[in-house]
């Protein structure tokens, strides 16, 4: 074993440390359970659709004041348009993390992301 270790030079420790930290970072960022893999769409509190975030898809949801358009893409989702006055849910842009929610209150439409191990991590949301 020692014979093998004699091949190592001082700088190799630095290289290995950087390589190990890169691998750990890759696992932490790409395999953490915070990335969403499906979108849950509700209207008036009722489940309208639940789709995986693997392929691109456009969904139109009818509400009391008009049509809300939701776009799904690999790993993310957003509200493209909504008839509501203030457009808060549209301005949220792309949602990528588990439990992220875009609520279009006037039209009673919500878009929520879910993923592995998502559970209910949040008791409440504050704005």
């Amino acid at each position: 074993m020692n014979a093998w270790l004699t091949c190592l030079r001082p700088g190799d420790a630095l290289t290995l440390a950087l390589a190990v930290s890169l691998v750990v970072t890759l696992f932490a960022t790409l395999w953490s359970n915070t990335r969403a893999d499906r979108a849950i769409i509700r209207q008036g509190g009722e489940l309208v659709a639940e789709h995986s975030l693997i392929t691109e898809r456009r969904i139109e949801v009818e509400g009391p004041i008009g049509k809300t358009v939701i776009e799904l893409a690999p790993g993310r989702a957003r509200v493209v348009s909504d008839p509501g006055l203030r457009q808060y849910c549209v301005q949220q842009g792309w949602l990528t993390r588990v439990n992220a929610v875009a609520i279009c209150a006037p039209n009673q439409v919500s878009l929520m992301l879910a993923g592995r191990g998502s559970g209910n991590r949040h008791d409440s949301l504050n704005y």
Binding site: C7, L8, R9, P10, G11, D12, T15, L16, A19
Partner: peptide
């Protein structure tokens, strides 16, 4: 300072 292991990695 940097040997074959560094190059390889």
């Amino acid at each position: 300072w940097f040997g074959p292991v560094s190059h390889s990695v």
